[in-house]
Write a protein that binds this DNA or RNA. Structure first.
Length: 741
RNA sequence: GGGACCGUAGUCUAGUGGUUAUGACGCUGCCCUUACAAGGCAGAGGUCCGGGGUUCGAAUCCCCGCGGUCCCACCA
């Protein structure tokens, strides 16, 4: 051993070693003592970023530790391949258009595989001990077939349906999205007060932020309350008149107004007035118009009063109408209306309001529209109570993260729209339509891509849904099932056996652990719980371990635009994978985590400390030796070490890897190196075999304890001093027996 | 509007009812002692955000503030 560890050499040698000696990484589903971890499949962007590094180092720590405890661990690595970002790269960077579907999909596949290669290399460098034989891609033949199989299963059980509904539509991405992907953004807006003539010569005053939807106006709603006439024959809520100091000319009860019709200017349509308990009397003028569709309320009211459906927004978010607004963008239409309706607009108020947007994709954030379309849905709206019961069976770490899920479940108000239109780089539906009915394809034809597999589709003589692919969360949200599938099939997959595979998978549920970030509780965690329960009537996992986000040193989110992104590869180049792991494992569950170069440096120093103790053993040629009479100092350190192992185990069981690491480090550095080792130097010089025995065995134990944190240096030193077999073949049980025996 | 989390030494951070409040970095002094100066030894540094309450005892539990982060919510 040289004076300093050379990580360039160690990393390379140990990676080679693990590629040849990874028996301990492999999971055997037929063996007992299973510990199965459901890991997040990273999206194949090409970058394994610091967040991936953090979460996988965490998972790997646990996997290695559990193996040393004698568990048969499944640590899978998967890749989530489909999605819009890849399409955009292909279109914008490679300049390949979507016209030729086959060519486009091939380009997507190439791009994705290239990205996986580079990400895979980073994951290897991090020292991850995933099962090399069970790496999955959501685009694998087996994965696609299984995903389609689960959809067919849901369809046959009546849990998946095709419906025409107003759906959330992202005009920018030109696709439908699910409520899991939508959220509200607070924005500046304009509230238009528009005068609408009644057929009695008076006018009612409505307030709206969406005047451009005028062509879709199909009704007027008022609250069941008092309304008054103010100047210029305007009728508003009494509340509004008082608040704005208008002179009240006459007062009406709501039912006196309800009997009139309203003439919508510009389009000359007469619509009716309805009084409704859900109208907010205190907002605006207490009068609202219904346009199909400006927001979810409109959908409710349209259905309640059986109103017409007049769509005036196309897929690109442009206006459809038979007047001069036709073809305009929404904003242009809004501006133009200021001119066209100038005799009707009483005032325009600047307001801050929440706008429904495509929040799941931070590079989109486009405002959403409601457009009626025929799509596939998974039913979830009516089973909220069930879902709430399901989540109770899962243990959350930390417990308060459960609130995010409960909060979300309570808010479900629509079924899960799983169709994505205009998305080519996705999994197609295994269904076809014939005589207005939906049928599933035969299992033996899975996976099926009706856009390409014309041979397969021929026999069905029906219309496939070639313009739709499934929501990407549909693919990733069966990961707990798929990781077991891959363990069962052993590279020998036959779609005809899907029913058998499925029945077998169920036996292994729930798996031990899901680990993921809190930002995808409402998507990945929720979706997985829903899918797996609907399919199997079992919860997917017993434990959900939730971690926070990685922030920069100042506590800001990392983003390309801020230029504060830390690349794990650079850290590993400059320091070591072990040092990066040291930093990652100082995080406590649930909390956001600042990147800290100081902690990386401390980690590196600790690795060097371990190394130098190893050198001391090597220089003094410390071998197994014979234990004779233990001295006080020997007994003390042995006892302390045995207690440390117990304490460390408690920390792991509570997912407190930070405490584990701090406690172990303190023992190594202070108790063992600074105290014990200094004390026994004389004895070592005098060839005291008991001291050598203690030194030899405790240091070996230290290497084992530190190994889940710093696998490289511990594996390397272990080979130099102890054995050429992988250190993961060691067991805590054996170690304890040896030292205390 | 509702909710969650957080506020501990110069900085970051653990602790969630019980002796001198954890650890890291930084800081001060001494030491190049053949495993290690990316080290060793010794040390300084805290009104645990503020106020009130519960308790024999509060950083920890409760209430009220102040400050921060995040999530959710249909108000046109």
């Amino acid at each position: 051993m040289d004076k300093r560890p050379d990580y360039k050499i160690i990393e390379k040698e140990i990676i080679d070693f693990w590629e040849k000696n990874n028996k301990e990484f492999n999971f055997d589903i037929n063996k007992e003592n299973k510990f199965i971890i459901d890991t997040p499949p990273p999206f194949t962007s090409g970058e394994a970023h610091i967040g991936h590094a953090l979460e996988f180092i965490w998972i790997d720590f646990l996997a290695r530790y559990k193996r040393l405890k004698g568990y048969n661990v499944l640590l899978p690595l998967g890749f989530d391949c489909h999605g819009l970002p890849t399409e955009l790269k292909i279109i914008n960077k490679l300049k390949i258009s979507k016209e030729n579907k086959k060519e486009f999909l091939e380009a997507c596949t190439d791009w994705t595989n290239k990205n996986i290669d580079s990400m895979y290399k980073t994951f290897i460098r991090l020292g991850l001990s995933f099962d090399r034989n069970k790496v999955y891609k959501t685009t694998d033949r087996e994965y696609q077939a299984f995903t389609q199989y689960t959809l067919i299963k849901l369809y046959k059980e009546g849990l998946l349906k095709r419906d025409k509904n107003p759906i959330m539509w992202c005009p920018k991405c030109q696709t439908a999205i699910s409520m899991q992907e939508a959220g509200y953004i607070n924005k500046e807006g304009e509230l238009f007060y528009i005068r609408l003539p009644l057929n009695n010569g008076k006018n009612i005053l409505i307030a709206t932020t969406r005047p451009e939807l005028i062509n879709s106006c199909v009704g007027i709603l008022i609250a069941k309350d008092k309304y008054v006439e103010i100047e210029d024959n305007l009728i508003v809520s009494k509340n509004y008149a008082i608040k704005n100091n208008y002179n009240i000319i006459e007062e009406y009860n709501f039912d006196e107004i309800e009997k009139y019709n309203v003439k919508i200017p510009l389009i000359n349509r007469e619509v009716k007035i309805y009084s409704d308990q859900d109208v907010d009397y205190n907002y605006g003028t207490g009068i609202v118009w219904i346009c199909t569709y400006g927001d979810p309320e409109d959908i409710k009211w349209k259905n309640r009063y059986n109103l017409d459906e007049i769509v005036s927004i196309d897929d690109k978010g442009n206006i459809i109408s038979n007047n001069e607004l036709n073809g305009l963008k929404l904003k242009e239409a809004r501006e133009k209306l200021k001119e066209l309706l100038k005799d009707y607009i009483i005032k325009i108020e600047k307001i801050k309001h929440n706008v429904l947007s495509h929040t799941e994709r931070s590079d989109c954030l486009s405002e959403l529209e409601f457009i009626p379309k025929e799509q596939f849905f998974i039913k979830m709206k009516d089973i909220k109570d069930k879902i709430l019961n399901w989540q109770e069976k899962i243990n959350f770490i930390p417990e308060y993260m459960r609130n995010k899920l409960i909060d979300w479940i309570n808010n479900i108000d629509q079924d899960w729209n799983i169709s994505r239109t205009k998305m080519l780089w996705g999994l197609p539906f295994p269904f076809y339509e014939k005589d207005n009915k939906i049928y599933a394809v035969d299992l033996e034809d899975l996976p099926i891509d009706p856009r390409i597999d014309k041979e397969k589709t021929k026999k069905y003589d029906g219309r496939f849904f070639e313009d739709e692919t499934v929501d990407v969360w549909i693919e990733s949200s069966i990961s707990p099932l798929v990781i077991i599938l891959y363990s069962i099939i052993n590279n020998d997959f036959d779609p005809k056996n899907l029913d058998n595979y499925f029945e077998k998978i169920k036996e292994y549920l729930p798996v031990n652990l899901r680990q993921q970030g809190y930002e995808i509780i409402r998507t990945w965690l929720f979706d997985t719980l829903l899918r797996v329960e609907l399919l199997t009537n079992k919860i997917p996992w017993n434990n959900a371990l939730i971690h926070g986000m990685v922030l920069d040193e100042k506590g800001r989110k990392m983003s390309k635009s801020l230029g504060n992104v830390v690349d794990p590869k650079e850290i590993m180049d400059k320091y070591s994978p072990d040092a990066l792991r040291f930093w990652a494992l100082l995080l406590s569950p649930g909390n956001d985590y600042k990147f800290s170069i100081k902690d990386i440096e401390t980690g590196q120093a600790f690795a060097i400390k371990l190394w130098n103790i190893g050198r001391y053993l090597e220089m003094n040629n410390i071998k197994e030796n014979k234990k004779e009479e233990l001295k006080e100092e020997d007994k003390y350190i042995i006892n302390k070490f045995l207690l440390l192992i117990e304490e460390a185990d408690r920390y792991v069981n509570n997912y407190r890897y930070d405490e584990y690491l701090k406690t172990v480090k303190k023992f190594v550095w202070e108790d063992f190196a600074n105290d014990y080792l200094e004390k026994i130097k004389e004895r070592i010089k005098n060839n005291d075999s008991t001291a050598k025995w203690v030194l030899y065995n405790i240091y070996k134990g230290i290497l084992i304890l530190v190994h889940p944190v710093m696998p490289y240096i511990t594996e390397y030193i272990y080979q130099q001093l102890y054995s050429k077999s992988p250190i993961l073949e060691e067991r805590f049980e054996k170690l304890i027996n040896n030292i205390s025996g």
